[in-house]
Write a protein that binds this DNA or RNA. Structure first.
Lengths: 138, 138
DNA sequence: AAACTACTCATACTAAAGTATGAAATCTTA
DNA sequence: TAAGATTTCATACTTTAGTATGAGTAGTTT
């Protein structure tokens, strides 16, 4: 809300400034009217883009931003979270082990811990839960 | 690409039209310069919003609309697609069997066919591929 | 130093997933 | 009706996933 007020304030200020500038250059005759018009067009084009981006940004939270707080709340360690991301990519335990340069049994340990912490019975369910908690990007 | 060219063409045309209008009104003195400036500001503001919306719209398709054509292209039957959706929800074969009132071996057969048709080795990978192909909602 | 946490690894086991093959019933389409 | 696709089910098998337990190492905190 504060940002919206600020943006509209800046918008009004820009408008008034351009009015004064246009009148001044109109009197002095130094600056061409085309330049003023082009400047206004560009400025308001940019303002339109920026405002629209901010508005649409709020509706785009789904599947993008990750809730890092929830990760620590669940007690997931760095390594466990890493493994969780690889699971979501569809890799097997052996493939994850090769990717992270550890043994498969290590990955199995991590996976077991992940399932307990997420309250999941299977890795596929863990993916679904992680999605709902917004702790993985998809 | 064609749309981009069209939009920029319209943009240039609008600019030129406003230039002529402003000069005409400047000579005749009927219309105030403020009105012209405000009109330019509003028009380019709207143009900025519209262009930005079109650009962002392409990135917002993720996780919403389902590509039904691709489902048939892959040769997935109704039942197989049903099973695929249940897999994505994190259910086990036995749970899917109970939900759809069939035996577990039937689900296994479906799953095997799904994996072949999607080119996946595991059900977790099938979920990932189905996501990328936009054939499941998530 | 001792306690704690995270990470690592192994072994042995159970459970689930996935493959291969064959077969029967249903439904659609030529 | 015959051919083809879909759905269903079973059995036997291999592979992967997941559990339980124990244990060693490294880094951090008290």
């Amino acid at each position: 809300m504060k940002k919206t007020v600020f943006i509209f304030g800046a918008l009004v200020l820009a408008l008034l400034t351009l009015f004064k500038l246009s009148k001044y250059s109109f009197v002095s005759g130094n600056t061409s009217i085309e330049f003023i018009l082009a400047a206004i067009a560009i400025i308001f084009f940019v303002i339109g883009v920026m405002i629209n981006r901010k508005v649409l940004h709020k509706n785009k939270t789904s599947g993008k931003e990750i809730d890092h707080k929830k990760i620590t709340q669940l007690g997931l360690s760095k390594r466990e979270y890493e493994v969780l991301c690889e699971i979501a990519l569809g890799l097997s335990n052996k493939e994850i082990a090769n990717k992270l340069f550890v043994s498969e049994s290590t990955i199995k340990t991590h996976v077991s811990n992940i399932l307990v912490k997420l309250g999941a019975k299977r890795r596929t369910q863990a993916i679904q839960i992680a999605k709902e908690l917004k702790i993985i990007s998809f």
